[in-house]
Amino acid sequence: MPRSDSGAPRAFSTLGALFAFIALGWRRAAANRAGILGLLALYWLILMIFWALWQATPLHELRRPGIDATRLFWYMAVTECVILAVGFPYRAVEKDIQSGEIAAALVRPLPYAAAILAEWIGATGYRLALLAVGGLLAGIWATGTVAIPLAVVPALVFSTVIATILALLCQLQLGYAAAWVGTPAPLFWIWQKLTFVLGGLMIPLTFYPAPFGSLAMASPFAAMVFAPASFLLDGSPRAILATLALQLLWLAVIGMATLLVARAAAARFAEQGI
């Protein structure tokens, strides 16, 4: 008689549970209508602020052909879409640790980290889809065009998915940091601002002075923010492949680091309690 807890059936059951968590995250995000409305308004506001800023900026001083306010608007539409879709989910892990609720979650058959990450992916996916439509509408309204070459759209979508997963993995680590530091908010602020600066949230990393620009481009922050938006500035196959390869490399590294942090936190809970 086949054992139900081994091999393929177990893998299917785990996958089924993960998809259920993804669906749960999606539904929860969709149910928070006031929050979604506020998020969309915040996104539009950011885009309008930077539209005004880039229009007021003497861009001719850059001496780079093809760079104008329209192009930079669309660049920001992508970077901000990723940042806002991800949000601050680390607080959920922090709350679970501070309240002790994580104890119940740790004994479930599906690992806590996998379950919460799946739920976040669902919620982020919903917000990402909504913000993408919102950004598209805002972009057409403000600039009168869509400055995203059709050929880069598949790479842009794939890269955005990797970027958001990378950011979620970092947020998971930040949430777990509550096991050691109690309140990880100060760590989050630093991580967030590094994402803004080294990720090229506002100004493309290609505009940064050397060697700061090259260093930033090789960092994981660039893989989270700059990577998808960079296709709007350089959509050559070579640039796309190099960017995606770097993103996948960071995905492997940060994924492994998250696994280690989750294990270390679980070991700490087992030894010292929550």
């Binding site: 861009l59 850059l62 602020w189 630093i190 601002k193 600066v197 506002m202 100004i203």
Partner: peptide
């Protein structure tokens, strides 16, 4: 951390004004 956070944010403007003369 908040002190450092504000300084990092200022870096964005240092980079901006390295490229542009004024806003």
């Amino acid at each position: 951390m908040m002190f450092a956070n504000n300084l990092i944010l200022f870096l964005l403007w240092v980079i901006y004004f390295a490229d542009f003369s004024s806003l």
